[in-house]
């Protein structure tokens, strides 16, 4: 492994301020660039000087002890933090060269391109079909009924759910099992055809078998989407992520190629955390 910063983002290594290893197997197409991001809940600072480059079409895992700000950071990327009145942010979050927090940026348009899957599966109180078809229809992605059916099938297939639900598309989404519900939520997110999918501890409420299914799914989905996932499970990060960022007390301690991070962590704190000394 060489320790040279990728050329596409020459400024990122010094600003992150830490050794950075290029993952040769992953893409180096920049998707989201974050510079000096600070965030406060009222008077409490939750994120401090976050600098990170997130790359297209691979899986980036955010790990760290609970309360370290990794979920908060994730929600900055599609401005879900806007829903909390006390939150104030400063700094740059850039996607495709456009500032996400700029006044002229429409957060609805942003979320249309940055999908999200939540910790607890939250299917709508509608049928399985409607859960998937609803958003594309509202976004005018499909016009004809046939297109819609096709899109739903494609999304459900991508989410690995089609075979299980194809005979009961009209049943309520809540009738599925927890793991199926979560895959339904993933299908719902990919049906909108976003660039990025944020996953906020998507498997923490699931059993081990469902977790394995979702991990496989993430691996397949990264061919088409940029996936950023928060996890408290280090093994999961090691299994699915190309890059891993370690958060601690609202700061990024280390951001690196997953393999490097887990074999030779650069920072003492990272080493303590991944060897299970705290967290």
């Amino acid at each position: 492994m060489n320790s040279q910063a990728p050329e596409a983002t020459p400024q990122h290594a010094p600003s992150v301020g830490q050794p950075y290893t290029r993952n040769d197997e992953a893409s180096h197409d920049l998707s989201i660039r974050v510079r000096d991001l600070n965030l406060w809940y009222g008077k409490n600072q939750a994120l401090t000087d976050i600098n990170i480059d997130l790359f297209r079409k691979n899986v980036t895992a955010l790990i760290g002890p609970s309360g370290c700000g990794k979920s908060t950071f994730l929600r900055c990327l599609n401005r879900m933090n806007d829903l909390i009145p006390s939150v104030r942010t400063e700094g740059l979050v850039e996607m495709d060269g456009q500032d996400v927090n700029a006044p002229k940026m429409d957060e609805v348009a942003l979320r249309r391109r940055v999908g999200m899957v939540f910790q607890k599966p939250n299917p709508f109180p509608k049928s399985i079909f409607e859960n998937v078809a609803y958003a594309p229809r509202m976004h005018d992605l499909v016009s004809r009924k046939a297109d819609q059916d096709e899109l739903v099938e494609k999304a459900l297939r991508s989410a690995g759910l089609w075979n299980e639900v194809k005979d009961k598309l009209q049943e309520p989404g809540t009738s599925l099992s927890g793991g199926q519900q979560q895959r339904l939520c993933i299908a719902r997110a990919i049906a909108v055809q976003p660039d990025v999918i944020l996953m906020d501890e998507p498997t923490s409420a699931l059993d081990p078998i469902s977790t394995a299914t979702i991990e496989d799914l993430m691996d397949k989905l990264k061919k088409d989407f940029t996936i950023i996932t928060v996890t408290h499970n280090m093994q999961q990060a090691a299994r699915v992520a190309d890059y891993t960022a370690f958060f601690h007390l609202g700061e990024i301690i280390e951001y690196n190629d997953t393999k490097v991070m887990f074999s030779t962590p650069a920072k003492k704190k990272t080493e303590d955390y991944i060897s299970g000394r705290y967290g």
Binding site: N78, M80, L83, V108, A109, L110, R111, R112, R113, G115, M116, F118, K120, N122, P123, F124, P125, Y134, A135, M138, H139, C185, R188, A189, V192, L198
Partner: peptide, 15 residues
């Protein structure tokens, strides 16, 4: 109505 439901919809780019 659970807030996760609203967030799920907003995260899909719904107004």
């Amino acid at each position: 109505v659970p807030d996760t439901m609203r967030q799920g919809s907003l995260a899909l780019g719904m107004t």
